[in-house]
Design a protein around this nucleic acid. Sequence first.
DNA 1: TCCTTTAGTGACTTTAGGACACTATAGTGG
DNA 2: CCACTATAGTGTCCTAAAGTCACTAAAGGA
Lengths: 237, 237
Amino acid sequence: MNEKQYLNEYQPKDYPVVLVTVDTVLFSFIKDELSVLLVKRNNHPYKGHWALPGGFVDQTQDPSLEHAASRNIREKTGIDASYLEQLATLGSGKRDPRGWSVSTAYTALIPHAKCEHFVDSVDDAAWFSVDEALRMKLAFDHTAIIRLALERQHQKALYSFVPVFGLTQPFTITDLRKAHETLIGKPIQRKSFIRRFESSDMFIDTGKVRQERGRPAALYKAKAAIKSFRFVRNLDE
Amino acid sequence: MNEKQYLNEYQPKDYPVVLVTVDTVLFSFIKDELSVLLVKRNNHPYKGHWALPGGFVDQTQDPSLEHAASRNIREKTGIDASYLEQLATLGSGKRDPRGWSVSTAYTALIPHAKCEHFVDSVDDAAWFSVDEALRMKLAFDHTAIIRLALERQHQKALYSFVPVFGLTQPFTITDLRKAHETLIGKPIQRKSFIRRFESSDMFIDTGKVRQERGRPAALYKAKAAIKSFRFVRNLDE
DNA sequence: TCCTTTAGTGACTTTAGGACACTATAGTGG
DNA sequence: CCACTATAGTGTCCTAAAGTCACTAAAGGA
């Protein structure tokens, strides 16, 4: 049998089906607090429970897994996440009562201001503080997925500037430091952070300043390459 | 409709099927050279091409994705990989001519001596040097998956002792350093490496030595916790 | 005995974060 | 106008850990 014949006769439904979904852990800083976007399920299973935004891959719309993830983000927030990272894939016969299921989890950080209005208009989506979300009984294994995402974001905050994607540009060094501190869960030495900020060469001084209380702070923008920037040395934990 | 009714009437095959596979990038050090295990496909598509060991999730045998990966490793090498890490999941409508397909890639390091005989007996499996494998026209997107695995192993060699899983225990410090050097692709300062080796407290001196040419070298075993050990600072690149 | 080879150590340099006090620049209230 | 407070930003010393490289240690072989 040649390949053409094989493909013509190939019937995938001769084999047991695996359900394929994506789930996204979307973080945002709301009043210096780390928040995660959840969606209320209005279908079985776990009907009425809160869950991570996500769903089945749609072969008519999604050329790739990552597309499925960003489509889900867009549907719930109205924006495209400029930082979207694949976290892990969970697959087992037990995680979904409908059958053997595989879910690829993604995580992203988005600036709250950019999507605040849209999220308010989507009536089954809402932001929860991470502490609160972890105490809730979420659908499927979504609590474990959030923990994985937190761990990943914590690590990234120690050796990269990925947390910058949770800020609206331009931003001050303190804005960025506070974002890191929120993800790490402890304060960072200001001087150390500023040194890393400057030595990284990943930021552009806009020349403008912002002033609230006290001395005005310089406003910066991040360069595009910041997404892949890495320090060789981690901050203290 | 309640949940029970929903589940009874749920027909997954009402939706287009997604093919779910796992692929494993299995590395081993053969004469200080990094090698990767490949398997010759004897079915369409890519019949006759070399590919990564892997295949469809088998719902009758595999309780989880990771189980599917280790089962594939066991089938081709006869051993259980004590270090098996999930790499990434690739999913698109184009990577497999049979349809929309998702593959979760795993990577592992195994000691060559432990599986040499078994692999020789499996006539469609063979070790290739990484350079050679990357020059070959492999099935699906397996060349890209190997590159991902190499990148991951390279990073791990800079901040962990994961490469130890490619060695037969006990081993000398030089054995381990050479493993790291192979993954990083450049020499490491002996003194720096020894300092890290000792400060990590992840090794047990067996009291025995091994001697080839020159002064005998102390033999060590790795502690179980080594899998999750991390340095805060990377080696130079 | 000396040469070669590989293992292991000593000691100085370099890098970069930690700590913390100091100065700078804004608003505010007497 | 002058403290006082708040936040931004700097100067300086300390410390941890890697880089460098020469030295010593212990084996076999000519």
